[in-house]
């Protein structure tokens, strides 16, 4: 018996020890150069801060040519509006109406905007322009300052608007027989409509 466990243990040790020894230690500089992913709790947000007023200037200089003077949308999508429309026949999904986390706005602007020059903005400019967009959407007041502490505390209007996916929600309740009822009934409508 003990022999057996020794064998098992030895086997496990070999498996654990098995490594191809690939790669070099990643340096802190290398890691810093990556996209600086920002977590919803603010992990990863850098130092710096920005005001709504400063953000208005950044937006006018760097964003409005594509998103419109008042972020109403042009070449790029609208960044304002849509609150209260999600449960209607014409939902308008914007940062203000749909995005659940303010940190995602920081993360996305940092990695992807301005669209034609991503990576251009420094952290204080990003805090500022995010503050401006949040203010345009009525989410923060015009005197609020965004930094690594205050930004994650901003509660977005649609913060609780996301639910786990219960899939498969359709398609699973039909038997495996060809020509079963569900297939016949549902398909019938389509066929009839097709023939007017």
């Amino acid at each position: 018996m003990w022999k057996l466990s020794v064998v098992v243990l030895a086997g496990a040790a070999t498996l654990l020890a098995q490594t191809y020894g690939i790669g070099r230690p990643a340096t802190p500089e290398q890691i810093r150069d990556l996209g600086a992913a920002i977590a919803p709790d603010g992990t990863g947000l850098p130092e710096g801060s920005g005001t709504v007023a400063a953000g208005r200037e950044v937006f006018a200089a760097r964003c409005s040519k594509c998103h419109g003077e008042k972020a109403e949308g042009a070449v790029g999508p609208a960044l304002v509006g849509g609150q209260g429309t999600l449960a209607t026949a014409k939902p308008v999904k914007t940062v203000g109406s749909f995005w659940p986390y303010s940190t995602t706005v920081w993360d996305y602007v940092n990695r992807a905007m301005p669209f034609d020059q991503p990576g251009l903005l420094k952290p204080p400019e990003i805090y500022a322009v995010v503050a401006y967009i949040l203010n345009l959407n009525g989410i923060i007041g015009s005197d609020q300052v965004m930094d690594a502490k205050s930004l994650p505390k901003v509660k977005m209007p649609n913060r609780d608007g996301f639910v786990a996916d219960p899939r498969p929600d359709v398609g699973n309740n039909v038997g495996n027989n060809v020509g079963n009822n569900v297939g016949n009934n549902v398909g019938n409508n389509v066929g009839k409509k097709a023939k007017r």
Binding site: A37, I38, A39, P40, D41, T43, V95, Y101, T104, A112
Partner: peptide, 16 residues
């Protein structure tokens, strides 16, 4: 980049 974390990061392409 593959960053191991204790939470989903709620990126734009998985929320918006």
């Amino acid at each position: 980049s593959l960053k191991l974390t204790d939470q989903a990061y709620m990126a734009r392409d998985e929320t918006a």
